[in-house]
Design a protein around this nucleic acid. Structure first.
Lengths: 119, 119
DNA sequence: GGCATATTCAACCGAAAGGTTGACGATTGC
DNA sequence: GCAATCGTCAACCTTTCGGTTGAATATGCC
């Protein structure tokens, strides 16, 4: 996987890993505490954390016998920027991009879902 | 995969599919033309297009024996909003966007020098 | 030292991803 | 009508993914 976007998007594709990122948004956490809310084993969560780390989405720092997990938003920014480029069709129109962002951020709360493009 | 974010991010995790989306950014294309620049078989590309369709990232419309593929950016927006509402980082900065465009567009070029489908 | 705690490793498993090939159903054009 | 074109389907293969379990490796505590 040469392209970092590969690993970032692959990491984001799993609901458990997205939930972990959301948890880490509030605070840094130890591995055991990250694992607590999930039904799966600790080892499974540990694997998820490895995947998130390799994607650059989190960092892990060991202090004593506890490993602390910390959100690393930079990797998310890269992917976000990539996706933004599809939001508007004039690739170099930064004004449109700016307008788009304003609308986007103000609508950040209601996550509407759309499907069935067949229409 | 209940959550639409699952399928959207999973679709974006593959470099072939991201390349397809970039191609469709310029114009709607027939399946055969989409497949032309890639080394893999037509059937493989057809599968990728099915995945993109199920994620809602593109739509496919059959006219005669040709099936046209069209970008559907709305699905991307859902994922984008998720990342924005998530990010502690300041709203995507325009410099990063500009830098991204330069890199992305210069990388997209050699792929299309083959037969320039849909140009 | 000895034991509990924190985390990973290793081996294994079933399912899904991503690719191939060959056959097949439509559609078009001569 | 028949052959070429467009695209998918079906079967198959290999690799990766996401999970399990049990053992192993630190580390902290008394």
């Amino acid at each position: 996987m040469a392209d970092p976007l590969d690993s970032v998007f692959a990491a984001l594709a799993d609901p458990t890993r997205r939930a972990i990122l959301t948890m880490l948004l509030e605070d840094d956490m130890a591995v055991t505490d990250v694992a607590a809310p999930f039904e799966m084993s600790l080892a499974a969560v540990s694997k998820h954390l490895t995947i998130l780390t390799r994607a650059g989405l989190i960092s892990q720092e060991r202090r004593g016998r506890v490993k602390w997990c910390k959100l690393e938003p930079d990797a998310l920014r890269t992917a976000s920027v990539w996706m933004q480029s599809f939001g508007q069709f004039e690739p170099v129109n930064l004004e449109a991009f700016e307008r788009f962002l304003k609308v986007e951020l103000s609508e950040a709360e209601p996550m509407e879902t759309k499907d069935a493009p067949g229409a």
